[in-house]
Design a protein around this nucleic acid. Sequence first.
DNA 1: CTGCCTGCAAATGCTTTGCATCTCG
DNA 2: CGAGATGCAAAGCATTTGCAGGCAG
Lengths: 138, 138
Amino acid sequence: MMEILRGELRERELPFTQQREAIARVLFESTRHLSADDVEAALLDRGQQIGKATVYRSLALLVELGLATEHDFDEGFRRYQMKVGAAQYDHMICTVCGGVTQFRQEELEAVLSVVLQEAGFEPLTRQIKIFGTCHDCT
Amino acid sequence: MMEILRGELRERELPFTQQREAIARVLFESTRHLSADDVEAALLDRGQQIGKATVYRSLALLVELGLATEHDFDEGFRRYQMKVGAAQYDHMICTVCGGVTQFRQEELEAVLSVVLQEAGFEPLTRQIKIFGTCHDCT
DNA sequence: CTGCCTGCAAATGCTTTGCATCTCG
DNA sequence: CGAGATGCAAAGCATTTGCAGGCAG
């Protein structure tokens, strides 16, 4: 993982700094979607203090490098998550408990590609968010 | 349309004010997604000056009443649109020209409902946003 | 009348930016 | 050494809130 980051950075002749490594590691070691604050707190937990501006800048960079994804669950701030493989997930957000469940449905891809093809639209990223009540909160 | 708004408000014993009417009208007469600023400007165009706080409060109310929908196209602010019928639209957002194209695919509903059913998730609203390059900007 | 609304301005809270300093390569 | 990164604090912006005065019912 760190190797991939290192590679992407080298490719663009950008320095592989301690901060970038630490931020990517925090993100990578969590399965949840983290906010900039979450990342900052996690860093403090492990004794690393990194300025918030740097956290924001690094998160944006990771997204730009295609190594992380950015999500907006209507909380007033954004969350980030490392992309593991190529797969992208869609989300169900419970408006009661705030829980986020990821899902993936192959058939969805097929149906969507039909629409895109018809419109001559070249997809880059997509976000599918379904708000509602989860199983436990029903 | 105004009748519906009037009815929803009465039902909750909330006053049907000039401002609420004007804001709903602006939204209703536009086919596009409007930001709070857009609404404020449109109101000024027709000689009505309404405080921005009221615009925000009314838009939130319309969403709560189920008469309007809120969208976030990653521009740093939100946009609103009146719900015409029951139908909800999904969107393709061109990252080059910023254009938003609405679409609707019946098969999507079917595929999604399978996922939701499996998870025991009760949907309330959903947002499908596909970012990419539109036909004209290719 | 009474409660909810409106407007203004001030406050919020996330995110971005300017700038001096430091680090990677 | 030099380009780019970092940190801090200040700035930016969309959105929210407090409060005095107004309007709908």
